[in-house]
Structures are given as structure tokens and as C-alpha cells.
Write a protein that binds this DNA or RNA. Structure first.
Lengths: 243, 243
DNA sequence: TATGTTTATATGTTTGTACATAATAATCCG
DNA sequence: CGGATTATTATGTACAAACATATAAACATA
């Protein structure tokens, strides 16, 4: 990855600057909370105008990756693990964009019979086995989410895939399935013994529970996903506007 | 609503332009698909610079409300389902839409000093008292949510209003304040003694916690709202789509 | 008629400049 | 010493100007 700006590159300067900033965000130095060089200085350093640089910074501020304060400076936004409803991405993409390295603590692949809910959602016979993917994921310090995913047979997953790769990357590149629509239900739960042990909590601790129904372009169901998040490390953010 | 730009208004010109554009979007003419006047012309018309106007347009493009094509023009984006689902409503509207009749179990109105968070959000002195509204609400069978709302003094609420009416109805009709933007953070918590007694739960039971920041058209803060929901009776749903 | 070619149009990119304002640090003074 | 005042710093807002490039329509040519 190029870490400087090339005026000969046909890619617009503000896009190059944006990419460069995305890299800086992942830099442990800045991810840790250090302020960026100020606009004027950084613009000079990159040999672009302040306006161009600001345009790039603004985009990242809008995305929630950077925060700015007048008279103070610009830095990486609090690494509170959060999920934005707009421009949704996969879990891994979301986290890497924030410079958080995701560790897989456990990964189980099994073939199971769908329960009634899932069979209904997928519109398949409850006698047909489907792929179930369970993952315990988190940061280096410890796990903070337990995922359970079920996939529609139509997708064609074999169970032999490398699930360390981003899931939606696998689906798009290897299975030509593009997740386009997602309906989510968020609620709170208490940790049962199983979840408590996985997420390193005491039984009864609060858990944010997210059910996710994922569809492809044709609005056909492709994934049914359950996410159990430690309440102390996950906030779900939503921004909405009415006209 | 003012449909022109006022250089004496302290509101930044690009925000004024943005609001103006939002109004144009609602105009049947443009909503129907007619192209906007081109940037140069429109900027001239509004007596602002092209850069300032572009800044405003860009924001709406980013929000998905407008589409632009080089060499062609700018027009209102095709209404997609996701943009419709973004239209948020008040709690009462939300519930009645689901056929649930809301009962108010408790209602307290007090004037309090804002803590640091609230004073910052409202951008006011921490010495100025603001209106605090607490409500325990639910269905006939029992309460399921405890709301705490703080209001910006600008709104002009006296505390004598009939808070059994829908809140946003009061704000719109009696105080000409229209809640336009809402940012929310959803997380999970354990019920402390206070919440447990109010919501008729045992201490430690899971609670869905929603923090809501509400803004008016000018993106000025008007309400800070905390909602504590019984986990067993509330699910938050989100629908999102990517292109 | 079919196919290039030009031209007008509108957005896209980039720079330079100036002043306003919020937050913080430094300074001064009673 | 403590409170008020005054820089300093960094982002926020706004303007003007130029050139680049994609699109579509008008035009010319084979």
C-alpha cells in the first residue's frame, strides 16, 4: 500500500488522501488516541491543498471513523465497537476499518437440521441439512461475541471454506452471492451458562442479542445469523432522518 | 420555512443551503424527477459560492437523497425502500402502528441542572436548569419501559404541557420544533434496584438501553432521551440495504 | 442511413486565500 | 495564589478561479 500521494496517479488526490488516512487510522499510534498532524501541516506534508485534505477527512468523520474538535485536533474515534446501520459491512470489515484486529477463538462447522423458524425463513424442507457456522470472536484481550450462522443450501457452501476470510468476501468472490438486504432485531438477554463460559462472564450478565436476516439481490434469504455480544463492549448505533 | 439564504443568519450558509435543498427535494416538481438547476446557476441564484453549495449537495448525495451525473445534472434519488424505512416515529406512533395501546403508569416533570454530558450535547451552561421528563409506560398488563427525557431550553417547554399527548405532536404543533434527525445507541444493561422496582423485575435482569440524541432541522439538539426497556418485551428492528 | 466529430453543458478536481471561532496554554495583575 | 486577560493553535466557514472530464445533442461526413 502506497503511503504517499502521487500527483501523476489518475486517482483523484482526495481519494488517495482518503485511503492514506484509512491506513493512518489503523496505525497503532493513532488508533491509540494520538492526534493527527493538524490539517495545514498534513496538507503541506502530502503536498496537497488544505481543501482537498479536508474533503477526505470530512468523509471519514461522516463515516464515524474520525472525530474532530475545533481548536483541538483530529483523532481516531473511540474504538467502541459499534455498528452503523448505514453502509453496512461485514463484521470483519467494520472492525478492521477501526483498526481492531479480530481474533477467532473458536470456529465450528457442522451440518444440522433446521428448526422450524429457520426452515420457514429459508423456505426449505426441515429434513434437509444445512450448514451451521459457530464462531467465538473478539479482540486479543478476549472474546466479546458469539456468532451462530446458518446458510441457505442455494449458496452452495461446502463447509470446507476458509472461514478465517471475511464471510461476505467468500460469498461474493467464490459463490457469486451478494448480501444486499439485512433485517435485524436487537434485544437484550441474560447470559446462560453456555454463553457465560464462552464470553468469560458470570451467568446472568447482560448480553446484547442481535438476530440478523440476510437476503441477496433477488430478496432471497441467504443467511440467518445470531450474535451474542458482551454488553460492556458493544454498542449498536443507528442514525435516522425523516423528511 | 424560509426558502432563501440569509447571510445575516448565524446558521452556516452550507447548512442553510442543505435545508433549502431538503425542501426542494420535497417539491413535487423535483421529487418527480426533474433536474435541479445546475450548480453554477443555483449558486448564483442563492448568492453563495459554488463550493459552499457543493458542500451541501455532497452531503445529501452521501445520504442517498440526491444523485448526480457528470455532464448531466443533479436530481432526487429514486425512492428506495430503505429510505422509507428510515422514517422514524415517536414511541406512541410506533406502538399504535403495531396496535398496542399505551398506558402511562408514572409521569414526573422536574427542572434540574444538566450534568456535563447533557450540557455538552445541548451546548448550554451547566448552571441553567432544564426540563426533565420521566415516564413509566407500558401496556395494560404492566410497564415495560422507563423513559427519561431532557429538553433544550430553546424549545420553550414550560412543564405545564399535557404530556399524555404524543411528545412530537406537542413539539411540532405548539412549539414549532420539528425533530428531524435522531442518533441512537443501543446497548444492554442489568437492572439496578431502581429500574427493577419500576419495571417490576428482579435486580440484575437484562434491560435494553437506548440512548437517543434528537435534533431539529438545523441540526440543533433538542432532546436527550434515555429509554430502559424490559428485555422480554422489546425488540429493536433495523433494516438496511446496500447498493 | 450509419457513423464519426464537434460543441455545449454540468459535474469533478484542485488550489489559494481569508477570516471566524472554539479550546487551551501562557501571561498578567491585584 | 487565583482569577481574569490575552495569545496560540487547530478546526470551521466561505469565496473565487481554473482546468478536467463525462454526457448528450447537434452537426458533418462517408
Amino acid at each position: 500500500m502506497n503511503l504517499s500521494i502521487d500527483h501523476k496517479n489518475p486517482l483523484p488526490l482526495h481519494i488517495q488522501a482518503e485511503n492514506l488516512l484509512r491506513n493512518m487510522i489503523r496505525d497503532p499510534q493513532y488508533a491509540g488516541g494520538k492526534f493527527f498532524p493538524n490539517e495545514v501541516q498534513l496538507a503541506k506534508q502530502l503536498a496537497i491543498s488544505r481543501s482537498t485534505l479536508r474533503h477526505a477527512i470530512n468523509k471519514l468523520v461522516y463515516e464515524g471513523l474520525l472525530v474532530r474538535k475545533k481548536g483541538v485536533g483530529t483523532k481516531v474515534a473511540e474504538a467502541t465497537i459499534s455498528s452503523k446501520s448505514k453502509n453496512w459491512q461485514s463484521f470483519t470489515q467494520e472492525m478492521t476499518a477501526r483498526g481492531i484486529v479480530i481474533k477467532n477463538f473458536e470456529l465450528h462447522v457442522t451440518w444440522v437440521l433446521p428448526d422450524e423458524n429457520i426452515a420457514n425463513f429459508f423456505e426449505i424442507e426441515p429434513t434437509k441439512k444445512i450448514l451451521k457456522l459457530e464462531r467465538l470472536r473478539g479482540k486479543a484481550e478476549g472474546p466479546f461475541v458469539y456468532f451462530i450462522s446458518y446458510f441457505h443450501p442455494r449458496v452452495g457452501l461446502t463447509g470446507e471454506e476458509d472461514f478465517k476470510r471475511p464471510l461476505y468476501d467468500i460469498l461474493e468472490k467464490d459463490y457469486m452471492t451478494i448480501a444486499t438486504l439485512s433485517k435485524e432485531e436487537i434485544s437484550a438477554k441474560s447470559a446462560d451458562k453456555f454463553l457465560a463460559s464462552k464470553l468469560e462472564l458470570e451467568s446472568g450478565s447482560p448480553i446484547l442479542f442481535r438476530k440478523r436476516f440476510v437476503y441477496d439481490q433477488g430478496e432471497r434469504p441467504i443467511e440467518y445469523n445470531l450474535g451474542y455480544y458482551r454488553a460492556d463492549s458493544f454498542v449498536y448505533t443507528v442514525e435516522s432522518r425523516r423528511e
